[in-house]
């Protein structure tokens, strides 16, 4: 479903701040794979997400989704294939627009936007049912401006929006990191349900190793712009946080003890 082939990206090339963020990443996902990505700060997790999402062009290598080579597509053109949820709950939704308007925007992801009405009556009914599943009471507030919702509510809405039009790939970039633990757990549970019900292929960056082990069928560890560990299936299920910490220590030569991952 997703093929990342030998992707390189260096920021601020040729300056004193040169930062080789991705140094030849290869990752192939099968349809239905749900991979969690962990790694220390600056390991290249979010950079890898952005390379797939097309926030900027990569220096080298290719990104192929479902047989379509999207390496040369700008961000808005890739959107037809991707559902995205961001770290900042404010990023995924339009604050001054109504809940139902946000959903209607997402329902037209990747389609030509013409002069037909922005939201139909059938859609409203459909959204009402979908919002009920979130169990946040949003179904009765469909004309409320999204800016009035809490971070957790907005993140749940973003998740719904990302999966409304079934994406080939769902990108979750530390999407629970800015939420309180209780809300984070709820959003994570919702993530699992949505991925499962829609049989989505998904990538999730996280700083929480327990979540990384618990969620999905595959786990990838990054360090200094490379994938240093890739595990799936039964082997992944048997992992413990201590195993991952050990891996990190090996990779980073002991420095890892100071990393904020320890706190997770």
């Amino acid at each position: 479903m997703l093929e990342i082939n030998n992707v390189h990206k260096t920021f601020n090339k040729g300056t004193i701040n040169e930062k080789p963020a991705l140094q030849g990443v290869d990752l192939h996902l099968n349809p239905g794979d749900f991979v969690t990505i962990i790694g220390g700060n600056g390991a290249g997790k979010s950079t890898l997400m952005n390379a797939v999402a097309g926030v900027w062009p990569v220096d080298e290598g290719s990104v192929v989704i479902d047989g379509e080579n999207i390496t040369g597509y700008p961000e808005y053109r890739r959107a037809k294939l991707l559902g995205r949820v961001f770290q900042d709950p404010m990023t995924g939704t339009a604050a001054t627009m109504e809940i139902q308007e946000n959903l209607a925007l997402a329902a037209r992801r990747g389609e030509r936007r013409g002069l037909s009405w922005g939201i139909s009556k059938e859609e409203k009914e459909q959204y009402h049912e979908m919002l009920k599943i979130l169990d946040l009471g949003l179904e009765d507030r469909m004309t409320t401006k999204v800016g009035l919702l809490s971070g957790g509510q907005r993140q749940a809405l973003t998740l719904l929006m990302a999966s409304l039009k079934k994406p080939k790939l769902l990108l979750l970039d530390e999407h629970t990191a800015a939420l309180d633990p209780k809300t984070a757990a709820k959003v994570l549970e919702l993530t699992g349900n949505i991925v499962e019900e829609n049989e989505l292929t998904a990538m999730m960056v996280t700083h929480n190793m327990k979540d990384a082990i618990r969620m999905g069928n595959r786990l990838v560890m990054m360090h200094e712009g490379r994938i240093i560990y890739d595990v799936e299936g039964e082997e992944k299920k048997k992992l413990h946080v201590s195993d991952l910490l050990e891996k990190f220590e090996q990779a980073s030569g002991g420095e890892f003890a100071n990393d904020r991952m320890m706190l997770a």
């Binding site: 808005y76 990023t91 339009a94 627009m97 925007l105 389609e111």
Partner: peptide, 16 residues
């Protein structure tokens, strides 16, 4: 309207 409100979100929804 969404472009004015949230450009990042708009691009993620496939809006040029």
């Amino acid at each position: 309207r969404s472009t004015g409100c949230n450009p990042a979100m708009s691009m993620a929804q496939g809006i040029n």
